[in-house]
Design a protein around this nucleic acid. Structure first.
Lengths: 264, 264
DNA sequence: CGTCTTTTTGAACGTTCTCAAGGGATGTGG
DNA sequence: CCACATCCCTTGAGAACGTTCAAAAAGACG
């Protein structure tokens, strides 16, 4: 309802991202190792991962990591940066499905099915850890803990989408936007990207509109309303939620007890 | 927006469902073995499953299999029947997340996290195959194929929710309802529950409203509109979509190539 | 036959959308 | 340094879609 075009301001898939074959950071110095919100892999699993990883890929804001309908050759773990998953209807309407933070695994669905049902676009500069898609599951079969973690991640992504469905189905514009802001800030804090109720992240109002299923105009008015109410201050440069508890109660979010998130 | 109460017309969780310990059908005569839409487990996996299963549980329409906020002791595979997953907000608003058909696995998220984030309710009489939650993952670790199937199922459920998010975010009432009808009929045909564009299934308009995030009144008017248009004929006793292709094109659904669904 | 649930209808109201236009910031080329 | 283009945000006003309240009709069930 909001989008005219937009997607693809950055380099498209055709322009290869900057790839560093195994020369980049090794797992021993993985930036995710310091992240508090993450469950660190056991030494032997780490070793396996280390042997399997192919290198890193760097993307700029606006770059597409995957494109809906294509068959990707790689799987990725986000080392740094924030990305989003979007889905296009034939007539150009666009829906943002979810956002992805450091530690998240990208491409699981494609790895199983072959063809992407959505597009993944970088919202900030991003560094991803590359894996080969072909051999992934054969090798995963030898690592029960890894299979378990994969299942865990898929199940939790599902839970996040559930929450999102509740938002779209039952909440009005203000509640919806508040719920999204709280979700993002919280998720950012778990990933060490946000702190103190502030997540520095460039999201345009057009993108917010596509995430919430609202028109651009109404999105703008809702942002202003929440700002006046002191609940959420969302600007081009970041999201601030001064009182998370107040925001949660306003949007009727029930705080889910979050266990430690594994990563690969 | 629609619900007053409703949930729990049947027996609640307190009233135990009818449970048949291993006396019921054995895997050798599993009703799912004949289902065309399902990928049959390999013999050795089947044997493992057979040893692990605890029996069957039978539920009536309206019975709750799981209740939001509780810690279930069992996991289930649906042998027959149709169920739905719903989520309640504090203030009583309810959102139906998805429907579940024979072959679907129930309780994965709870198995990982302990606490249910949603309720599962039987829409028809249902027979479920019971597994013990505690030992499930220990044993699954010994069956790589099983781990893979679990990941597959979680990833695909995620894809279904994605589609649902697109509906809620981007489609208007008519498109939304058409998309849901097509999804259900198609899913029913894969499970052998529906045929010829007709799915016999008792869903009240109140439930449809909660699934689509619409008010009861508007749901009713939308049903009538779609009936007049000859696209979807949805009554208390079933859903009929005379021309699936026309309906798909109206709702802008891109036919996803569906691979065979595994089950446990 | 009476009760309960579900569907249907009317009418007023409110949220959200669309159309239309203007303004601020940033960047590029002349 | 200015002119122009682009992107994003902002505002106004009317229309459309969807909600709420209220009540009645139609089925389902014992």
């Amino acid at each position: 309802m909001a989008r005219d075009d937009d997607a693809g301001q950055g380099r498209s898939l055709a322009d290869a991202p900057q790839v560093v074959l195994n020369g980049g950071l090794r797992c021993a110095s993985c930036p995710l190792a310091d992240c508090e919100g993450l469950k660190q892999p056991a030494p032997e699993l780490l070793q396996w991962i280390s042997a399997f990883r192919q290198g890193e890929a760097r993307f700029l804001r606006g770059d597409l990591v995957f494109s809906q309908g294509t068959r990707p050759r790689h799987l990725y773990t986000i080392l740094s940066g924030v990305l989003m998953r979007t889905r296009l209807l034939e007539d150009g309407r666009r829906q943002i499905i979810n956002f992805m933070f450091p530690g998240d695994f990208i491409g699981l669905q494609a790895a199983l099915d072959g063809e992407m049902t959505h597009t993944v676009e970088a919202l900030t500069g991003a560094v991803l850890c590359m894996f080969n898609r072909e051999r992934f599951f054969d090798l995963a079969a030898q690592q029960p803990q890894l299979s378990f973690d994969l299942t865990w991640m898929a199940a939790h992504e599902e839970a996040a989408l559930e929450e999102h469905i509740v938002s779209l189905g039952q909440r009005n514009a203000r509640e919806r936007m508040t719920a999204l802001a709280v979700f993002l800030v919280q998720r950012g804090m778990e990933s060490g990207v946000a702190s103190d109720g502030l997540l520095p992240l460039t999201v345009t109002q057009g993108q917010i509109a596509d995430m919430l299923g609202l028109s651009l105009v109404h999105t703008n008015r809702t942002i202003q309303a929440l700002r006046r109410m002191g609940l959420v201050d969302w600007t081009l440069t970041g999201i601030r939620v001064p009182d998370l508890e107040a925001a949660r109660s306003f949007a009727k979010i029930d705080q889910s007890p979050n266990s430690l998130r594994p990563y690969i």
